[in-house]
Computed example of a mutant assay.
Amino acid sequence: MKLKCAALVGLLVAAPLAHAEHVGVGVKWAAFMPTESTNSESPELDNGETNLGVELQLEHSVPFLPNLQAEFTEITGQDFKYMSSTATAYYSVIDYKMVGFDLGVGASSLRSGKINPAGNSIGSSNSTSFDGSGAHVYVAGEFAMPFMPNLAIIASAKKSISSDLVGSDIKLAAQYTHSVTKFDLVLQGGFRDLSHELSVEDVDHQFNTSGFFASVGIDF
């Protein structure tokens, strides 16, 4: 439900802003398909479920004001689950047709978390709730293929800079952009590694989720 609300808000905001000059709005829907999804306190390896996510992005040409990005992903393992949310303000340090490079800072949070320290299924009655939040730095790069400008290699990383919530979110993917009359259709596919460390009832846990992801987006 939260992801549907985020996607709906993104479309409602994007529609009027799509006609504004020097403003770009994007919405992406993603499927994250981990080959590994583990909790350090559980002895079992879980291949993970298909996790859904939404990414919203606002870029503009107003001097000194940062661009904005928000991302929401539901993560589910065998004995844990949580909603990963990030909000990032960033600047496009390099913004050319073939090459782009972004730098920024933001806030990360884990919400609606549940864990079963015994390693049983997350649906069991003795699951423990948890939340966490912290700050992160953000870097991202894009390199378009000279022989096919619509195809690009993209990479991004969010790394914690606070002790309250330690973690990282790294992506490496291929991106294809197809221009339509009113918008651009953006397709991505690649690898994602998402990890978080936090203490739940005085027990330290490290959640590692990594594998393939694919997304489809609309840029106005």
Rank of each mutant, 00 (worst) to 15 (best):
M1D: 09
K2C: 04
L3H: 04
L11R: 01
L12Q: 04
A14Y: 00
P16Y: 07
P16E: 07
L17A: 07
A18C: 11
H19P: 00
A20Q: 15
A20F: 14
E21A: 14
V23P: 02
G24E: 14
W29M: 11
A31P: 01
T35I: 09
N39H: 07
E41S: 11
S42D: 15
S42H: 09
P43C: 02
E44S: 12
L45R: 13
L45D: 13
D46E: 09
D46M: 04
E49A: 13
N51C: 14
V54G: 08
Q57H: 09
L58A: 07
E59L: 08
H60M: 06
V62F: 11
P63V: 06
L68K: 03
F72R: 11
F72M: 12
I75T: 08
Q78K: 14
F80C: 05
M83H: 11
S84E: 10
T86W: 02
Y90H: 12
Y90W: 08
Y90I: 09
Y91Q: 13
I94F: 11
D95G: 08
D95I: 05
M98G: 00
G100I: 05
G100V: 07
F101M: 07
D102G: 05
L103P: 03
G104Q: 10
G113H: 03
K114C: 00
N116I: 09
A118P: 01
N120K: 06
I122Q: 03
I122M: 02
S125T: 13
S125A: 14
T128A: 02
G132S: 07
G134A: 02
G134E: 04
V137A: 13
Y138Q: 05
V139Q: 08
G141K: 03
G141F: 05
E142G: 11
E142I: 03
E142K: 15
F143P: 00
P146Y: 05
F147S: 12
F147K: 08
P149E: 12
P149K: 14
I153G: 06
I154F: 11
A155W: 03
S156Q: 14
S156L: 09
A157M: 05
K159H: 12
S160L: 01
I161E: 00
S162N: 02
V166I: 15
V166L: 10
G167C: 00
G167L: 06
S168E: 12
I170M: 11
Q175C: 10
T177N: 11
S179K: 10
V180Q: 11
F183K: 06
D184N: 15
L185F: 12
Q188C: 05
G190N: 06
F191Q: 08
F191S: 03
R192Y: 05
D193R: 10
S195I: 05
E201Q: 14
D202M: 07
H205L: 02
T209D: 05
S210K: 15
F213W: 06
A214K: 00
A214M: 12
S215T: 12
G217D: 04
D219T: 13
D219A: 12
D219F: 09
